[in-house]
């Protein structure tokens, strides 16, 4: 089987370093926020930052966007399944 020659996954080391810097910055931001902010959006803020970091890892380190349709769709299906699972669980436990 011949392989597709131009799988455009290659990223320069400089670009990867940039991603690392962004990840470390977001970690610092998250720690600072947890330290200084105690409002109602505390949990939401921490988890949103974690979600952005996850997005960076998925796109730039795991090349999710270049992985093909099968991976993209099945990944989406997994996330949706997990979201439904979380939603149904809380629909049960919050309103008992």
């Amino acid at each position: 089987m011949t392989e597709k020659p131009a799988e455009k996954t290659a990223l320069s080391i400089t670009a990867l370093l940039g991603v690392l810097a962004a990840l470390l910055f977001l970690t610092g931001l998250s720690i600072a926020l947890a330290h200084f902010y105690t409002g109602p959006l505390r949990v939401a803020a921490a988890l949103s930052i974690a979600a952005v970091k996850t997005g960076l890892v998925l796109i730039f380190f795991m090349h999710l966007r270049q992985a093909g349709k099968a991976v993209a769709l099945s990944f989406l299906a997994t996330v949706v399944t997990l979201a439904v699972f979380i939603g149904l669980t809380f629909a049960d436990t919050l309103y008992r």
């Binding site: 947890a34 949990v43 988890l47 974690a50 996850t54 890892v57 998925l58």
Partner: peptide, 22 residues
């Protein structure tokens, strides 16, 4: 293997705020 390692990293990205920050 890299994919696996990155996923392990992602799991920690969520474990860290859940246990240490929020």
């Amino acid at each position: 293997t890299g994919l696996y390692w990155h996923l392990v990293d992602i799991v920690w990205i969520f474990l860290f705020p859940l246990f240490y920050l929020i």
